[in-house]
Design a protein around this nucleic acid. Structure first.
Lengths: 191, 191
DNA sequence: ACCTGAACACCGTTCAAGT
DNA sequence: ACCTGAACACCGTTCAAGT
């Protein structure tokens, strides 16, 4: 009676997430995935008819889980600077986890290899990030900037953090991520 | 007697570059590549013993070609703002070319799938970019910042531009790249 | 020097067959 | 409902064989 959500489908998604964040959607193999879960590769298709279905479900779950965490920060009533620091820390922690990358960033790079359903989820992920960042940028009452300006700034922060993670991953060096984010702060991009 | 450099090896590299910038290193197939060049896939191995050798040569050539272009801008004596605009335009043009991505950014995302030789070239690419950006940041005589600060700013600009391209590619929308870069400028990250 | 066909172990996908 | 083995056309790589 589903006392645990750790059923086969969830275990497939968990293993797939770790693989995609390290090796990409293209580096995800049904045979390896099956080995990790303890079934045969053909059995994965019972839960996810195609690799695209799996990728779509994976990205969708990733976005909602991340959104939940981010909203919880706002729910705690944290101030703007703390919110941004916790935000950049999420991407930092991903790197600390064996140089892994944000699922959304990884899949953005793999755009041309993705089924349309997965491409759509990648866009939704970035939109969720921007929506949250807009809320954070509006936190102080001194809102002298217009709505469009705030949204562009939020998109820029999202892109800058993604780029910091991408470059640091390419160097396999978390300290590069730290230097970059610090420089963003010094330059005035981050509050 | 080599009156033209458009020999088989160069044609392989040219076709490979376009493919990797669109589909990634993982999306590069010897069979497809051979088809584009007009030989058999086994023949590619005559010029590049392994996929890693091909990837390494590709990244190396990409870096030196890009460095040549960037240095030519400084050679023309262009001012700081113009240099940065021409720099961001390079990445913009890549997106305009069927939503393609910088080879260095693409390969950074694929880090875990790359042979060490290729990983090294990805690092060299980013270092070349930072070196050039440092030179540009030092262009005005009013150099009030220290050497370390300048270098961190240069690295941050490189990362930010890579992120802008990554996010825009994920959305298949060049206008997103433009909005992000504009926001970088407004925030003071870009001169 | 340059090219090829054939083989190998991989891949996602399909499907008939099991329980 | 859930799982499997076997087949299919792909992949990079290897190698003996061609010219």
């Amino acid at each position: 009676m589903a006392l645990t959500t750790n059923d086969t489908k969830e275990r497939i998604l968990d293993a797939a997430r770790l693989t995609v964040q390290a090796h990409g959607y293209g580096g995800l193999s049904f045979r390896e995935l099956a080995k990790a879960v303890g079934i045969k590769s053909a059995s994965i298709h019972y839960y996810f008819p195609s690799k695209g279905e799996l990728g779509g479900a994976l990205a969708e779950r990733y976005t909602s889980t991340f959104a939940e965490y981010l909203d919880s920060l706002l729910g705690e009533g944290l101030d703007q600077e703390t919110c941004i620091r916790k935000y950049t820390d999420v991407f930092r922690n991903t790197l600390l986890n064996e140089n892994r990358m944000c699922l959304g960033g990884m899949m953005a790079a793999e755009h041309d290899e993705l089924p349309v359903k997965v491409q759509v989820e990648v866009v939704k992920f970035s939109e969720m990030n921007v929506r949250w960042l807009v809320k954070v940028l509006l936190l102080p009452n001194k809102t002298r900037a217009g709505a469009a300006t705030i949204k562009h700034r939020a998109l820029a922060i999202f892109a800058a953090v993604q780029g910091a993670q991408l470059v640091a991953r390419g160097r396999n060096d978390v300290s590069a991520y730290d230097r970059i984010v610090d420089a963003y702060r010094s330059a005035g991009l981050l509050p």
